[in-house]
Simulated assay, not measured.
Amino acid sequence: MPTTLKAKFDTRREAEMTVERLVQEQGIDRQDIQIATDGADNSVGDEKAGADTAGRDPTPPSREDAALAGKIVVSVAIADDARATEVKAAFNEFDASDVKE
């Protein structure tokens, strides 16, 4: 039965890693996946990650202007229950919270 699964992530990086896992390893079509903020404001998540954090020298220091305005929501449209198990496993692998159908 068709449904949409949604989950929230603390960082944009975790959300994007989940999408790549679903597309590359589970064969889910990118058009069936959406990434959005959990609210009206632009956000990279609740925590700094990736380019917003400091790296090793000579990388520039961490940014102080990261839009930390809320979690990132990933929604996946699926056609059957077998896919739901795969999607939930990917959500869990990248520390999703508030997983809903």
Rank of each mutant, 00 (worst) to 15 (best):
M1I: 04
P2W: 06
T4I: 14
K6A: 05
A7R: 00
K8T: 14
K8S: 15
K8A: 14
F9Y: 14
D10E: 12
R13W: 13
A15I: 04
E16Y: 08
M17H: 11
T18K: 00
V19N: 04
V19I: 14
V19H: 00
V23M: 09
V23W: 09
E25M: 14
E25Q: 13
Q26W: 08
Q26E: 15
G27P: 11
I28F: 04
D29A: 12
D29F: 05
R30M: 07
D32I: 02
D32C: 14
I33F: 12
A36M: 14
T37R: 02
T37Q: 11
G39H: 07
D41V: 06
D41R: 12
N42T: 09
N42Y: 14
N42A: 15
N42S: 08
D46A: 01
D46I: 03
E47I: 09
K48C: 07
A51F: 13
D52K: 04
R56T: 13
D57R: 05
D57H: 15
P58R: 00
P58L: 03
T59P: 00
P60E: 07
P60K: 12
S62D: 12
S62I: 01
R63H: 15
E64T: 10
D65P: 09
D65Y: 12
A66R: 03
A66K: 05
A66G: 05
L68D: 04
A69R: 14
A69G: 06
I72D: 02
I72N: 10
V73R: 09
V73G: 04
V74L: 14
V74P: 05
V74D: 02
V76S: 01
A77I: 03
I78Y: 03
A79M: 05
D80I: 03
D80E: 15
D81Y: 10
D81P: 05
A82Q: 10
R83I: 04
R83Y: 01
A84C: 01
T85C: 03
K88H: 05
K88I: 15
K88Y: 03
A89D: 11
N92E: 13
N92V: 00
F94C: 07
D95L: 06
A96K: 06
A96M: 11
S97Y: 00
V99F: 01
K100W: 05
